[in-house]
């Protein structure tokens, strides 16, 4: 493999790894935050029901 192609491969590999890595990271974080918000909301609803009874 020539040196030109090595540079080319490294350049595009860095671009793809960072872009897809960021996409996976952000999507995972959304799931995590939404799950946490869902749990807190359920807890608040339960407390509200308990208080109104």
């Amino acid at each position: 493999m020539t040196q030109e192609l090595v540079f080319l491969f490294i350049g595009y590999a860095v671009i793809w790894v960072l872009l897809f890595g960021y996409l996976v990271f952000v999507t995972g974080r959304i799931r995590g935050v939404r799950d946490a918000v869902h749990d807190v909301r359920q807890e608040l609803d339960a407390q509200r029901r308990q208080a109104s009874e």
Binding site: L23, V26, V33, A36, V37, V40, L44
Partner: peptide, 27 residues
Amino acid sequence: FVLIRQRYLLERASDEGEGLRDIVRNR
């Protein structure tokens, strides 16, 4: 645009979490 949308959804979810945190703090 896909990345911006996903990051935007994360920010909205975080804002929602911040709002709920205020409610819990008040409670």
